[in-house]
Design a protein around this nucleic acid. Structure first.
Lengths: 377, 377
DNA sequence: GGGAGTGATGAATCGAGGA
DNA sequence: ATCCTCGATTCATCACTCC
């Protein structure tokens, strides 16, 4: 069974293209230009930040940059790094869907330049997320604080893009029912998870832990989404994407990394749908019009509604609107008006009398929804 | 007062100058140009963040969030902000001693631009330090992660400057004899520490906690050093510097902030040497998210949990939620739902199979917490 | 006086969908 | 694109009232 088939089964929209679930070999920018525009949902990028310029970096005119020694060369290298960053971010932005988001991870060596460039290119930062390492490398010389974290920038394609995926309820439920914060605690990648060659040497110098990628993808993508990693390396993004029922696309220059990643991903077993289903919360529930409660006989025209403390009341009219004093309109409008607010959730604000007590009309909505499900609506 | 005399005095103990322990009123750059060059040991800067807010934000209870909308935080564009940043950083660099260091604090709105500009101007980043807030403001609309930290950049004046102050042993001693990490945990400034006017309104919208400044100054300065804050605001830097036996210089434009800071600092009593040597910080009890057990490999997605009598069971999903029948959610919600209760402590209710018997998952939390404490959570 | 309960608030770049 | 309506959404801490 091919990886492609397998993941197609899990996907909702069932995208299909020959570049899905593959690794494109070559230069990052050139490879990205082979992909169709607006075709990926999430990008995770772990760009190189070696300012030692080991051949990764070129000036815009493609001339090579000399090694870093003095302040002038340092300045030169920043310029070269910025040009490199700008080029791959532009290429990545082209293939990102309008409601897609991008994650970029880095350390203090490069993340400030990357973040500024992202803002310059029009990305809209949603969060910076700190990966706190449980087991960071010590600072051996004792001249600085132990560098115990890395920084990820999470951004949407445009400032106005509001439709990006964020699985708020799932993150909250996974975090003991309080909002997931912007500081995450994970161990660095060691032990059996760390890819080694036959000599026991690590295959990739900066292999990221799968748990980190899992939270990234669980928070900001849906099953069946397409996840692009333009610096694929040892393929952590691909392995986690496959396990979580997402499609992946990788770009990588080094054949040795590609070989290791392909073998690694081939051994990944995707999780089943039961394990993958995510918490959705009220936002994903079908909408219920208040008037349908009257249609269903759950509430009668003319009956009175109250707020929880019986400070205000309103009468239900036959057309599904409320009237309170000289105010009338939807349950939300009237609820807002009597309190003097701009907005109000009428479903939770208004209550009806039952057994001498008050019950929120949201309870009636819940009953109506059960009826809708039974009817296969 | 000659510059020569001044630098002589400042180069070792007992500096004296009429601008020491004062606040210079006026524009940041113009005021800094009135100071002699190479005259301060440490700079702590809390520049405007350039928040780009659009419309009001309301809490779920419809109250309005008191946003930072002051004129001093408004900039026309990123370019304008960059020019502002470049100008004050250059002026600050001139007055910094060759072996001096600079701290700049910011959020994702501005810190990437600030960091890139610092590198462009020749500052050499030593660490980025994350201030993790114990009590950050929530994300009210549930559209992002809770923004729970701010970032500080700590940099030397030049790449080659090796003689900067870093009190490695003091930091290590204050951190249970392990190296101080780059992620620090402090509450935001509230309660009695927060400066209020006669109406009870906060005097400054972004007053920083003294504990944060104390760690900054204890780590990177010596008693008698000169600490410059070019955005003095409510004077936290000055208050902490005086308390810790350092000299301060502040620059501030707004007279109301200057008045409040002067009165505040006048009430500060400097600590004696004995007190200075025994200062340590306390930590909060770390919270463990259930999903972190999956992250740490303590429990696997798809595994089954049971109550103590095996009456109910639930399956662990990859996002850290449970599923039992048609119920899903956090360990607490599902525990409550299967029993028909409103609430349930999932940590003690759910058990996992080990050695043929059942063990509460609270045991796994205990193990995870050990790892977190080691990480300084 | 203490404990319970209520209310206020902090550097915020904080909708979605149909007509 | 624009307008309009629906209606979803908060954590830790501190101050204050009430009994």
């Amino acid at each position: 069974m091919s990886v492609l088939r397998l993941i197609d089964d899990l996907s909702h929209a069932a995208p299909s293209a020959d570049w899905l679930d593959t690794i494109l070999k070559g230069d990052c920018v050139a490879a990205l230009e082979r992909l169709p525009e607006k075709s990926v949902d999430v990008i995770f990028a772990d760009p190189p930040y070696n300012l030692q310029l080991d051949g990764d970096l070129h000036r815009p005119d493609q001339s090579k940059v000399d090694a870093v020694d003095d302040a002038w060369d340092q300045f030169e290298s920043f310029q070269a790094y910025d040009a490199f960053t700008r080029a791959w971010l532009l290429a990545a932005r082209r293939v990102l869907k309008p409601n897609g988001t991008i994650w970029v991870i880095g350390s203090y060596h490069n993340i400030f330049r990357v973040g500024a460039t992202m803002q310059d290119l029009g990305f809209w930062i949603l969060n910076d997320v700190v990966w706190r390492k449980t087991n960071p490398m010590p600072n051996f010389r004792g001249r600085r604080f132990q560098n115990a974290h890395e920084t990820m920038i999470w951004a949407s394609r445009d400032p106005k893009a509001k439709g990006y995926t964020f699985n708020y309820e799932a993150m909250k439920a996974a975090n003991d029912d309080v909002q997931m914060r912007s500081d995450w605690l994970f161990p660095i990648c060691t032990g059996a998870e760390r890819l080694k060659d036959e000599n026991g040497d690590k295959i990739h110098p900066t292999q990221k832990p799968e748990a980190l990628l899992a939270r990234v993808l669980l928070s900001s993508s849906k099953p069946g989404d397409v996840v692009l990693d333009p610096f694929f390396g040892s393929g952590t993004t691909g392995a986690v994407a496959k396990r979580l029922g997402r499609h992946f696309v990788g770009v990588e220059r080094e054949q040795s990394y590609i070989d290791a990643a392909l073998e690694r991903i081939a051994h990944v077993r995707p999780l089943g749908e039961a394990e993958l289903s995510v918490m959705t919360g009220k936002r994903a529930e079908p909408r219920v019009a208040f008037v349908s409660l009257l249609d269903n006989g759950l509430i009668k025209p003319g009956s009175m509604l109250f707020d929880a403390k019986r400070k205000w009341s309103a009468q239900v009219r036959a057309d599904g609107t409320l009237a309170s004093g000289d105010v009338s309109g939807s349950i939300h409008r009237v609820g807002a008006a009597v309190q003097g607010f701009d907005a109000c959730n009428g479903w939770t604000f208004w209550h009806y009398e039952r057994n001498g007590g008050l019950t929120p009309i949201d309870e009636l909505r819940r009953i109506a929804r059960l009826g809708m499900e039974r009817a296969g609506a």
